[in-house]
Amino acid sequence: MKHARVTAALAAAVLAGASAACSTDGGGEATTGPIKVGSINGVTGLFQTPEVPKAVQAVFDEVNEAGGVNGRELELISVDDAMNPQRSTEAALDLIQTEGVVALVGSSSAVDCGLNRGTYSKHEIVSIPAVGVDPACFTSPNIAPVNPGPFGLLTAMLYYASEELGHDRVCIDYTVLPGSGGGVDAAIQKWSELTGKELAHQELSVGEGDPTKYLVADKNAGCQAVLYNGPVGPYFAQAKTQGMEDVDFVVGANSYTDANAQAIPPGLNVYAGTEWQPYTDATLPGNERWSKIIEENEIQRTAFSQGAVMSADIFVEVLRTIEGDITRSSVTEAFKSMEPIEYPMVGTPWVFGPGEAHNPVKGSRFVKAGGGAWQVLPEGFIVPGEQN
């Protein structure tokens, strides 16, 4: 199996060796030979998603083995920015100016969107991240992730707690990361506008220390449901100690792992919101293809790898609609003018389109912890404002 390249030096060496054999469109982009596609990922550092470029590469390998796109192979150039701002900025410029990539596909960096949104607009190149993390991923003209994002998911989680679980006193114990406070505030406001409800209690600076004071405050506020996004083990161990078996806890996609399901004490009601079909059930619509890709290539099974396969699939589907040369400009035009794509792994159709902001995927499915595993709940995707 081919592997994504992760160093600019290696990329430059391959480019130099191949340049004599490739014609270009006059702007440094090859119109014969491989179709170069960039990706900026967190393989190392604080936010690690090493499975994402592997999954994108696996989809590209599948396409290449079937003859490529218009006879041209797809070449993924993945760069690890290690969540380092300078490395992320340099990676974007190198991919665009030196490598001549036609688009960015399957990025999963926590800092890419905020740092490079202006670069993508300036160079008129589109990015289809596998994992959109910060608000800039969803408010930029040239970026459209394939996930609802943490803020769209937060609105869905609040909506699930109040409208599906039927609670009037909904609370939040959250850690707000630098630069994401505006997104959290907007997500809460969106929920309030949809439901006419306000939070009964909120704490937006929950750290990784002893969670007792936050849980005691929740009890004193009469919280019926509590949304939480921090480390699972200590928090829920203390919730059990506090006797909070009558409270419905809702955690985000970052907590939706097999290990966390095993760490939640019996007797607590803990739900998790997912951005794609729950990955723990390979039989759900859309998951069959993802599971096949993951198993055949021995890639870690995570929700983020779902986004990787989806972003690669969508990119290939749009690429096949292009008549004539496949270049950066033709790829950008194809995404800006495309028709919506129904992709069963998510709750709403995905489309890029011509707008100044893009957050095409809405809604979430929910799972519940029980017996050391996550049980998929039957409601299907919850799209705030479309239920009840």
Rank of each mutant, 00 (worst) to 15 (best):
V105P: 00
I128R: 10
C137E: 04
S140I: 01
S107K: 01
A103N: 02
S88W: 01
G106I: 01
G106R: 00
T139I: 13
T139H: 15
T139V: 11
S140A: 10
D134R: 14
S140G: 05
S107G: 15
H123T: 04
Y120S: 03
A92T: 07
V101N: 12
D94P: 05
A91I: 09
A130Q: 00
F138M: 10
Q97F: 07
R117F: 08
P135R: 11
A92D: 03
S108R: 04
V111D: 06
D112T: 09
H123R: 09
G114S: 08
A110Q: 11
V131H: 00
T98Q: 13
L104R: 02
F138P: 06
V105R: 00
G132L: 06
V105S: 01
L93C: 08
R87Q: 14
D112V: 06
G132C: 11
A103E: 00
I96Q: 09
V111C: 10
T89W: 08
G118K: 13
K122N: 05
V111F: 06
L95K: 00
L93K: 13
Y120C: 05
L95H: 02
P129N: 06
G100M: 08
P129Q: 07
D134M: 15
S140T: 01
V133H: 13
V126R: 08
V102H: 01
C137I: 08
F138H: 05
G106V: 04
V105I: 03
E90Q: 12
A103I: 08
P135S: 12
V126K: 12
D134L: 14
E124D: 15
L115R: 12
G118C: 08
N116Q: 10
R117E: 07
C113L: 03
V126M: 14
G132E: 08
F138A: 07
H123A: 03
E90S: 11
D94H: 13
S109I: 09
V131S: 04
A130V: 05
T119K: 02
V101I: 15
A92P: 01
S121H: 11
I125C: 12
S107A: 08
K122V: 03
Y120T: 02
V131A: 07
